[in-house]
Design a protein around this nucleic acid. Structure first.
Lengths: 153, 153
DNA sequence: ACGAAGTAATCTGTCAAGCAGACGATATGC
DNA sequence: GCATATCGTCTGCTTGACAGATTACTTCGT
């Protein structure tokens, strides 16, 4: 049941956010990329891809599109000339702010059948579960149990 | 944050269930199909597809494979000879029981960083939210199940 | 009863998305 | 300096989904 509930909710979330992200290239994917760049500022293109679970070769043409739309820019990292730092343009920030607002509203509507006092509970539990379930860097933390929530950014 | 938590959790759930479903064709998809057939018994192939949000032409080759593996059978519906009733074989039931057990364990592990008393809370909230968010068939029924009644859409 | 229209499942062709692998450019270790 | 690893890009291939046509059957209208 857990998996199915997640599937249904994420599907519905995607549909709504797809609509909220109509100004962005690549819909939901695009929203997640732009959001990660602005809010988390991963240092390199590869880090960004890893964070979102996207293949590096896919990242290339996603960013091509974003750069073409003037939402993001690739800059040579002066410390490592192989790497590109992905930075949002002012326009990108503005657009994201708008979309973020629409997404927040969509999420509200998505949970509208839940009693208002339950919504923050759900969000907190989900976030905690997601943080604990995430693979990768802190695999030990997951095993260590509730203790390990000390992570970078 | 809601969307991202859902994405991360579902991704991790899929990875674990993919592993738990290694006896089944088509991985997670296959598990959902078999599970829906056994536990929900939708009357026709089309109903099954609609329930899982799968295209009807895709359903065709999914079921081809399941039938080839002896997990499911297509039987002519005697009432409507256009339609096929999808019924599980004994073997299918047995395999599903095994996989279900593995999935249950995987879901437990997935939530292992959550305090045990919080897990049923999360599950209940998720299920309620999913029922309320789902489009289509029984929007009224879902609403009627909770506090507010009688809102026809 | 007969034909028209609708519906269940399948088949066919097409198209996009993603991945593995190769490649040029740079960095690092010996 | 040379071997090896990494960052980002490019190429080719495979896969997977959808639209549309097709076959089989039902239902409705007259």
């Amino acid at each position: 049941m857990l998996g199915w509930s997640l599937t249904v909710l994420l599907r519905e979330w995607s549909a709504r956010v797809e609509d909220a992200s109509r100004d962005l290239p690549h819909g939901v994917r695009g929203y997640q990329v732009l959001s990660a760049v602005v809010h988390d500022a991963p240092p390199t293109q590869a880090a960004l891809a890893a964070r979102l679970g996207i293949d590096r070769t896919v990242m290339t043409y996603l960013l091509d599109k974003f750069e073409g739309c003037g939402l993001l820019e690739r800059r040579q990292d002066p410390a490592d000339r192989r790497a590109r730092r992905i930075v949002p343009t002012d326009h990108g920030r503005r657009v994201l702010a708008e979309v973020d607002a629409r997404v927040a509203q969509a999420e509200d509507e998505l949970l509208s059948t839940l009693p208002p006092e339950d919504r923050p509970v759900l969000l907190a539990l989900l976030e905690h579960a997601a943080a604990g379930a995430a693979p990768g860097e802190d695999r030990c933390a997951a095993v260590a149990g509730s203790a390990g929530l000390t992570r970078e950014a």
